[in-house]
């Protein structure tokens, strides 16, 4: 499997992306409830997976 991270700079960007990912899930939980948080979690996870697949096929 290809390592998605190549350097410190990419590891740093991963920190920021993960922060946004969890912030969206937690915000959905706080404002709309557990079901909404689950929907956000699934939607974001699918979006990230699709982005990774597209990036790999483009490379």
């Amino acid at each position: 499997m290809l390592n998605p991270l190549r350097s410190e700079a990419e590891a740093f960007r991963f920190v920021l992306l993960l922060l946004g990912y969890f912030a969206a899930i937690v915000l959905a939980k706080a404002v709309l409830g557990t079901t909404a948080a689950l929907v956000v979690f699934v939607a974001l996870s699918v979006a990230v997976a699709a982005w990774i697949v597209r990036a790999r096929s483009a490379a």
Partner: peptide
């Protein structure tokens, strides 16, 4: 060490959330 530090940060975001 920077890569390791970012990993520690990532894990804390997951643990805290």
């Amino acid at each position: 060490p920077g890569i390791y530090w970012h990993f520690v940060d990532v894990m804390w975001i997951v643990v805290y959330a």
